[in-house]
Every structure is written in structure tokens, then in C-alpha cells.
């Protein structure tokens, strides 16, 4: 790939837990990726616009418990003309929520205990595949 992988990270909830996102962001930066923190308490519209504006390859959402915003982001991304960014969710996602999320358009869900390496590798490989397809 020519350019560095660009990732938009967001905590859509009002919930302030940021440990997971901080750790993952630091690991992605160390792996050479460009991480842009979009902020806290953004809605689906704001997340999608920020992703377009920043021209990112990946959107990373840090979630806990309930996922309405993620489904709305999926809808917005489906409406986008052209290629949409990869959508990755991390956090305390109950096991029975993973399949509905991935069926709706989430590319990957990383639950607590996922290794940093597995996240980096996934994003790198997916972006490489997409670049090759383009």
C-alpha cells in the first residue's frame, strides 16, 4: 500500500470508558497506522460524515452493551456511493449480538481479550485486500 492506513476512532456512547480505545489506538499507531480520534457522544450521522471528511480506510467504534448507533452507522454506510470504509467494533459485545452486527455490515467485532496483534493483523490484511481489489 502506498499510503498509511487511516482509522477514525469514536466512542459513540455517553459512557466514558476509554481504556480499551486508548490501548488499541496506541497499538495501531505503533503499527504505523494513522489514528484520528473523532470524539465521544457522536451519532451515526456525525460518525459517517467524519469518516468521509477524513477519508479514512477504517472506522473503529468502541462500544458497550447496546448497539443502536452501530446499526445506524451500517445503514448510512450502505447509502454511500463508492467504496465504504471498513467498520470495526470493539468492546463488551454480548455473544448473541455478534452475528446480528456482522450480518448488518460490521466487518469485525473484537471482544475483551482479543490480542492487539489480532486487531492489527486483521486491519492490515483487510486493507491490503481492498487495495488489491481497487
Amino acid at each position: 500500500m502506498d499510503r498509511r492506513i487511516r482509522i477514525l476512532t469514536v466512542r459513540p456512547s455517553l459512557d466514558g470508558h476509554w481504556r480499551g480505545l486508548a490501548v488499541v489506538s496506541a497499538a495501531l499507531r505503533d503499527a504505523g497506522m494513522e489514528v484520528i480520534y473523532g470524539g465521544t457522544a457522536l451519532n451515526a450521522e456525525e460518525i459517517t460524515s467524519a469518516a468521509i471528511q477524513e477519508d479514512v480506510d477504517v472506522i473503529g467504534l468502541s462500544m458497550y452493551g447496546r448497539f443502536g448507533t452501530v446499526y445506524k452507522v451500517c445503514e448510512r454506510l450502505r447509502e454511500l456511493p463508492g467504496r465504504r470504509p471498513l467498520l470495526v467494533v470493539g468492546g463488551t459485545v454480548p455473544p448473541n449480538e455478534i452475528e446480528p452486527l456482522t450480518k448488518s455490515g460490521v466487518d469485525a467485532v473484537f471482544v475483551p481479550g482479543s490480542s492487539l496483534d489480532s486487531i492489527i493483523t486483521y486491519i492490515r490484511e483487510k486493507c491490503r485486500e481492498r487495495a488489491a481489489d481497487a
Partner: peptide, 21 residues
């Protein structure tokens, strides 16, 4: 936690999360 209004746009938009814990 933050003494937010139930009707504030931030909370209303995320009302599915109310009572989460």
C-alpha cells in the same frame, strides 16, 4: 453520573442505553 436531562438530545438519541447499568 452527569446529572443529564432525560430529554437532552444526547440522552434521547441514546435512550436504548438507559438503565444499562
Amino acid at each position: 453520573y452527569g446529572m443529564y436531562d432525560l430529554d437532552s438530545p444526547e440522552v434521547y438519541e441514546r435512550r436504548e442505553e438507559l438503565g444499562m447499568y
